[in-house]
Nucleic acid binder design. Sequence first.
RNA 1: GCCCCGAUGGUGUAGCGGCCUAUCAUCUCGGCCUGUCGAGCCGAGGACACGGAUUCAAAUUCCGUUCGGGGCGCCA
Length: 449
Amino acid sequence: MKDYINWKRTKFAAEIGEDDYNTEVTLCGWVQYTRDLGKMAFIHLRDRSGVAQLTALSKTMDKEIFDLIVSVPRESAISVRGIVKQSTQAKAGWEIIPYKVKVMGKASTPLPLGVVDKVEADMDTRLDNRFLDLRKPHIQSIFMIRSTILNAAREVFLEEDFVEIQTPKIVATATEGGTALFEMNYFDKKAYLNQSPQLFKQTMMATGLDRVFEIGPAFRAEEHDTVRHLNEYTSIDCEMAWGDLDDSLEILEKVIQRAYSNVLNTNYMDLENLQHKIVSPERPFPRLKYGEIIEKLASIDLEMADEVSGKKRTIEWGDDIPLEGFREIAKDRPSLYFVTEWPMKLKPFYIQPSPDDHEISQGFDLNYGEKELVSGGQRVHDPGQLKTLIKERGLDLEGFKFYLKAFDYGMPPHSGWGLGAERLTMIITGLSNVRETVLFPRDKHRLTP
RNA sequence: GCCCCGAUGGUGUAGCGGCCUAUCAUCUCGGCCUGUCGAGCCGAGGACACGGAUUCAAAUUCCGUUCGGGGCGCCA
């Protein structure tokens, strides 16, 4: 039989108020809970905005509708038409007296994952049933916040005259090196999933677009198994010409600050759902020199394994700062700070040395406590110098042909950075596992869903 | 790449040689209930990852496999 009723939603649960008393509404959502008292039943209907209570009385309603509404399995998708009634007994002050119900999508039982159960599920179970996991308001909040963060970045870039670009994710050469890549077959040729847009965005500096940004995926085939790594992550990248490192840092500060303030302004309910409080950071962010950090760590005798001998020794200038070292620094600096003036050998080949000291680079990191958020710097734009640095690292010039070509025909000075979108989301939401901030995370063990 | 840890109903767990025909909660199904909102009450259902070994006896010990969690390095 054809259904002639228009089941389009007229209100979200959270939109209902005094003005709606004694009017008809159509709500669409999921049956969160059914409390059947025999001749009377309460159904909690959840939509994106919140929960509405439907109060069904067998005496005053069609028996068929009553039986349907009390028997529909929880988490089924239903549409309900009813009258909003004021009620002192209902928590919201109102309730819906339904008179028409349509089951749009019946849920099977039992659920692989309870949406409102009192028992928590493991991350693995949750990810296997992510669509159900996402029905939990506090999980949805993570992705509401993530969306705000990405848009805040976009907002700042566009205000600052950047052009949004997309660079290829399938590439022929082993790009910048330093990480394992996923290999793939490209019409019988070997190809790789790109680890970062670095070389492409730099190439754009030779075009006259001057300021570009990209928000897109990056792939790393590292078999790391930690709460802060993903094999596919979202990189917020930018590159700008004709300026110096400070211009880059300023844009970065603005992006981070805007992300915080937009989340504070628009996602206060989501922060509440996550029971997390944040404070917008003030600019400029503190700047720590690599050398100062090493001094501090050496003064407390932080030990680390020597790269060559493997023996334990005190940290010294030239060593990379281990996580344990950053944990020490985080005791005094639990929030955002830049780390500048890294030794050249700890930074990639495309980072420019300082004009005063060729051992020191113009590369920087942005940390939040012990967490690394951003990496960037002033780039080498002289083709001769760039070739030398590539060779010094033992990399094959042949693989960088397309990149180097752009430097041979008028490359202006430029700088830029890459920000891990998930790491920023993790910090702003206060979550401890980066997987929480991705709908369908890719890690060493997980390829589905 | 290196190192730890774990696997018990749909979900989350207890048990750590015989007391296990396996605990509790949640869940599912059936019954009662006209004001529930962590509903309540009565009844029922459902599990020891897989393979091997030790033992009179294994969920429990050992080995292997598979799957999962975490740490380090590296990075965003």
